[in-house]
């Protein structure tokens, strides 16, 4: 029995010796339907965020109200961006931990990811509050509508990600994420990294590129 088990490759062994590191699912593609579905969903999300970013680019020169670079606080947003970027590191370390069967460590990294995500959201709420106080409401201008819709949609995605992370920790505490279900953590991780990737684009296009 032990010999049968040890003769099978793990993710880590596959990674060390093969070009493509993954354990094949019993589907036509060798990829589980859940994972394939998540990648398909992420591909469709490119169209959603592409549309929102394009709308922002079209409306970024407001005819009334404050202009983007009058109100943006780049040092503050840079710190938020850094926090979100680091959450991707903690997320990938969580996936790595569950692949090794280290449940406690996985929960710690996922908890850290959720805390970093919550910090980012808190920063976004603070930023929106400051903007509103400075006279930039949702209906102030086409720029403000496009800005709040784009960054707000991203914030909603981060919030959904935090809910998924907390659910993962709760499931893990109840023993419902054994090693052979490590892919569940990976799939949530894919979503989380995508949210980070979208912010990489928003940060450059919305905040850093001058008008």
């Amino acid at each position: 029995m032990a010999e049968t088990l040890t003769s099978r490759p793990t993710l880590a062994e596959a990674d060390a010796h093969q070009a493509h590191a993954h354990i094949d699912a019993d589907t036509n593609t060798g990829i589980s339907n859940t994972k394939l579905g998540m990648w398909l969903f992420l591909a469709s999300e490119c169209l959603l965020f592409g549309g929102l970013i394009t709308t922002y680019l079209l409306y970024k020169h407001p005819l009334e109200g404050p202009t983007p670079h009058e109100i943006f606080d780049i040092p503050f947003t840079s710190t938020s961006s850094f926090v979100l970027l680091m959450s991707s590191l903690t997320m990938v370390l969580a996936v790595s931990a569950i692949e090794r069967g280290e449940h406690q460590r996985m929960r710690v990294w996922i908890g850290a990811t959720a805390v970093l995500g919550a910090t980012f959201i808190a920063g976004q709420i603070y930023e929106f509050t400051v903007f509103a106080r400075e006279g930039l409401g949702f209906t102030t201008s086409r720029f403000s509508s496009a800005f709040y819709t784009l960054t707000g949609f991203h914030g909603i995605h981060v919030t959904i990600g935090i809910i998924m992370l907390v659910s993962l920790v709760l499931l893990s505490l109840r023993g419902k994420i054994p090693e052979h279900k490590a892919e569940t953590v990976e799939i949530v991780g894919l979503y989380w990294h995508f949210v980070d990737v979208v912010w990489v684009v928003i940060f450059a296009v919305v905040y850093l590129i001058p008008s």
């Binding site: 032990a2 088990l5 040890t6 003769s7 099978r8 490759p9 793990t10 880590a12 062994e13 990674d15 060390a16 354990i23 094949d24 699912a25 019993d26 060798g30 589980s32 790595s96 692949e99 090794r100 069967g101 054994p178 090693e179 052979h180 892919e183």
Partner: peptide
């Protein structure tokens, strides 16, 4: 060599192979 995703492979019987390798 193919392993299906629902095979349960306890890491305790892998002679430390998983522990030794980390990304």
């Amino acid at each position: 060599m193919t392993v299906t995703s629902h095979d349960n492979v306890p890491t305790t019987v892998l002679d430390g192979a998983v522990k030794d390798y980390s990304r």
